[in-house]
Amino acid sequence: MSLRIDVAGLRPERVSVAPSPLAELGMALHALAEPGHHPGLQGWVTAVTAGLDPHLADRMCEADFLWRTTFSDLFLPCAGIPGRTALPGATLADELDLLDKLTDEQFVDCALEFICAPGYDLPSAGVVSDPELRRRAFDLAATRGPRQVRFTRRLLDDPPRVRAWLRQFLRDCDEAFFADVWARVRPPLAADARLKTDLLRRKGLAETLTSVSSAVTLDEEAARITVDKLVVGRSATGDGGLLLVPTSLGWPHLMVLHRYGWQPVLHYPVGSPEPAAPPSVEQLALRMTALSHPVRMRICRMLARSAYTTTELAQVHGVSAPEISRHLTLLKKAGLVTTRRRGRYLLHQLDVAVVARLGSDFLEGILR
């Protein structure tokens, strides 16, 4: 599974790297709503939560589905501007002005993204004006709860009112806690953007994407970017551009805006503790499958304690050597078992460090 971005015909000057204050505010709201995703921000989350005005905290819960899952595309409005080459604003006020430039249809589609799960890779369905689609939106919202129903009703009945509410809410968040956050993270984000821009100019897009994350690769022959994620999606730069947006608060999330008709955006964490070569989604699935068999679990128990030959394992488990070999082959293919030669014997042993990382690798893989 992966996300793919077709970059055929993409001109080098249309690849941009720029921090976004609005996207970083979206990530801050996400971290406050889901602190378990971001263990490194626990202290900050605790401090902000303790100091929040109760009224603002209530408003934060009113539409937290816009940022709880990840965060809505509303936090990257530049991608929806016609021409698909717009950049984030330098200030939050600039970005809120870009948000105002989205049409009501764009705004509603993005706001309903996590409530009603409309088509993401297809043209807008026109839910604002289509009575049948409105009924479907309410039906889907009802499965999510009363808050989502109330928000959907307000949104569809009066989009400008909800837009004004969201704008004021974001400004209040900036005053309450985000201005201090942005003052702290903006310099390293700007520095990373300069480094990536320089790398893009000197080494090209492939090396720049590799520096963003080892989960992002470019097939230059096919003119396609592949992002290794546990989702399937497609996008294309077309006659527009490609935007890379660094985040200081985002790890472990590597997010891809691939909404139909919008400029594709890679929203990537900087300064993250990502291993040099994290396992791919396919490798994670292979490891989970390899460990799910009871015989292989018992083999791993022995190999965690010492190195054994295939014959020794067969004798202990009371099965044939060929059967043990088949199990070992799967474990080695998954990268869980190493083999070394001692004289004429092959000794197998569990790679304890890889197994110890499996839980965190799996969590990072599904949150990526």
Rank of each mutant, 00 (worst) to 15 (best):
S235K: 00
F138W: 06
L22P: 06
G40D: 12
D64W: 13
S124L: 12
V162L: 15
L205M: 07
V355H: 13
F151E: 11
S306C: 09
V15P: 01
P54M: 06
F362Q: 05
A183I: 04
K101A: 13
Y120N: 12
E207W: 06
K203E: 14
L96H: 04
G241E: 03
A334N: 07
D361V: 06
V227Y: 04
A141T: 06
V337E: 02
A276M: 08
R298C: 11
P35F: 04
I299H: 00
S235D: 07
V162I: 12
L257N: 07
A31W: 02
W262Y: 15
R201E: 15
S360H: 14
R194G: 09
R59F: 08
Y345C: 01
L336S: 02
K196D: 02
E113I: 03
L133T: 00
L336P: 00
T338V: 13
G43A: 15
G343P: 01
V185H: 04
S2P: 05
A137D: 07
L330F: 08
R259V: 12
A307E: 13
L218A: 00
A117M: 12
G43D: 15
R147M: 14
L25R: 04
H30W: 06
E207D: 13
R305S: 14
D361M: 01
V232E: 15
E207F: 05
D198A: 15
L22W: 09
T197F: 06
V216A: 00
P77R: 04
T339D: 06
G119F: 01
A222I: 02
L200E: 01
Q263S: 11
W165C: 05
S124E: 00
L286M: 14
G240D: 07
G343K: 10
V295P: 08
M255S: 09
F75Q: 00
T329R: 11
R134K: 11
E13S: 05
A223G: 00
A334H: 14
P54A: 10
G80Y: 11
R68Y: 01
A23R: 00
F169I: 02
R184Q: 14
G359L: 08
R84C: 10
R84D: 11
Y260W: 14
T103L: 09
D157Y: 07
V127G: 03
T70L: 03
C300Y: 15
L367D: 03
L303T: 02
A125H: 05
A206V: 00
Q315V: 12
S124Y: 10
L254G: 03
R194I: 11
S214L: 08
D139C: 07
L284I: 15
F75V: 02
P264H: 04
T226P: 01
I115V: 15
A191S: 11
K332R: 15
E221Q: 13
V337W: 01
L3E: 03
H327S: 12
R340L: 14
A47E: 12
R340Q: 09
A93V: 13
P118A: 03
P322C: 10
R296Q: 13
I81W: 04
R298A: 12
A47S: 10
A307K: 06
E220P: 03
Q263L: 10
M60F: 14
V316I: 13
D180C: 08
R136V: 05
A321V: 12
S16F: 02
F114Q: 15
T329N: 08
L336M: 02
H37W: 10
A18D: 06
R357P: 05
E207A: 14
